[in-house]
Write a protein that binds this DNA or RNA. Structure first.
Lengths: 148, 148
DNA sequence: GTAACTGCAAAAAATTTGCACACTG
DNA sequence: CAGTGTGCAAATTTTTTGCAGTTAC
């Protein structure tokens, strides 16, 4: 087992996994470590590479399975990019929204949820009951703005 | 050329295509027809099947290319579903938001844009300039609510 | 006419599955 | 030690590409 993994997300993940009777394996913690040190959203391939660098070997299938679990647990969120691609990033929970820098794919919390402020009058007028939503903001972060 | 294609989206698409120097081919109009008659979001495969039924033959590659173009033009929007899948539906423009019924994948307009009501104070506090956003609401439509 | 398009078949990319072995709790 | 999880390789699924032959304008 590799030391130096400690971060908020790790202990949180350990707890959630334990609650569900799932195991905190080296590979799962490595995925967390990779996401943590990158500080941005990563593609499946990038996560796979990071875990391989950390552990020597890692099956791509394990990465997929791990990300599925983490997404269910709300630790991680699948983000969609304007170019059609997608990636994964930490999330503070299933119902948090994120801002993504289109240049570096860095991820920032977006604390407000504008949808909650909204009454669903127009939705109900169409006979639609809103149960959940997905929001993602695109833009440019500080650092990428400087470079440009 | 197949008759009976006429719908708002068709003439709109024809105009946009012409503006860009692109051609209103039978296949492109067929994609519009299929989306129009379905009245909901469809997977690439479903669109392909629909076009094949209409034209006899249709290359899958053409469907992909057509959807890419239509998405660029803002006629069509790629929607993401909670199960990880995705599909395409008509959009009134690049910046419209939609509600998707998780049962039938029907798509409804969501006229308000809650994000526009929002000041980006918290975003700017983090040094982030918001430039665009993606919103999708999930829920249940009238008909699916009755059945359930 | 001629550029833009198409279908096809092959290639590439992305994701899933089955299974024998390994590790966590 | 029991059941969960892993790596691997193969299977599947999804998307892209190159090209010779069409078609819209």
């Amino acid at each position: 087992m590799i030391k130096d993994f400690e971060c908020v997300q790790e202990s949180y993940a350990r707890d959630l996994l334990r609650e569900k009777g799932l195991k905190s394996t080296t590979q799962r913690l490595a995925v967390i470590h990779v996401l943590h040190t990158s500080g941005k959203s990563l593609s499946v391939g990038e996560i796979h590479d990071g875990v391989k660098k950390l552990l020597g070997v890692a099956g791509l299938a394990t990465i997929y399975r791990t990300l599925d679990i983490f997404e269910d647990l709300g630790i991680v969120k699948r983000l969609h990019f304007p170019d059609g691609g997608h990636g994964y990033a930490f999330s503070r929970g299933r119902h948090f929204h994120h801002m993504v820098c289109v240049d570096c794919r860095g991820v920032f919390d977006f604390p407000e949820c504008p949808v909650e402020w909204l009454d669903y009058a127009s939705a109900e007028k169409q006979g639609f009951r809103v149960k959940d939503h997905f929001i993602q903001l695109f833009g440019q972060c500080d650092k990428c703005a400087e470079v440009a």
